[in-house]
Design a protein around this nucleic acid. Structure first.
Lengths: 105, 105
DNA sequence: GTATAATACTATACAACACATAGTATAAAA
DNA sequence: TTTTATACTATGTGTTGTATAGTATTATAC
């Protein structure tokens, strides 16, 4: 899958993965494996950006002597998901147009 | 609509608009108005990129003393559209996952 | 008992692309 | 005669997915 097409969706995908329960970097990657392949170099910057934008809050929990950083979604994060779902309808318009032109050709 | 979400789709949208007949910048913007709002500053770079990538060919036609640049889609351009339609299925997976998580929450 | 894999991050840098802004220039319409 | 429509080019910016590299611990396999 072309990288450009994922733009805007990956962040929201990460947000959505935190709706049911808080999680941390490594586990998020695992839990999304069936949905989309997301590497560490993609995920961690996303987590930091989302936290900087108040869509996520984080707290650290000690685990085997090391700190594990957990993230939880905020109300703003939930709003962000809703906006995405609406925006995607517009993207579907574009997709439908392209599919139609191909079919008619 | 958030700009990032359009990434990768606009180019293909322009390609698809040229399937039925050749066209030129200004007219492409008009013909896509019902599908997606695309400005000059977005379209013209796209046309140049697509031509540089051999997805489009161009030729100039004199019109009212000025040259009007027409674009026609190439086989490579058509292949590009097909790839997009496939990639979009993967994007739908992401969307469906997000919608599901929201619903279950 | 040592090498490998899994866990769990941070930091730096790059490339693609949507879009803003500005500039150029002609023709038609008000 | 001023505005609107037509029809482009050029330059620069911000976002974001991803590559690469580095750090450090624990568990598993040979």
């Amino acid at each position: 899958m072309e990288a450009q097409l994922k733009r805007g969706s990956l962040e929201v995908c990460v947000l959505a993965s935190l709706l049911k329960e808080d999680s941390y970097g490594y586990k998020i990657i695992q839990s999304l494996q069936n949905v989309v392949e997301i590497s560490e170099s993609t995920l961690y910057p996303i987590l930091r950006r989302l936290e900087a934008g108040d869509c996520l809050k984080s707290y650290s929990v000690e685990h085997n002597g090391r700190l594990r950083k957990f993230y939880s979604i905020t109300e703003k994060g939930k709003d962000r998901i809703k906006e995405y779902l609406q925006d995607f309808q517009e993207l579907m318009n574009i997709f439908n147009y392209i599919a139609k032109e191909v079919k008619d050709d």
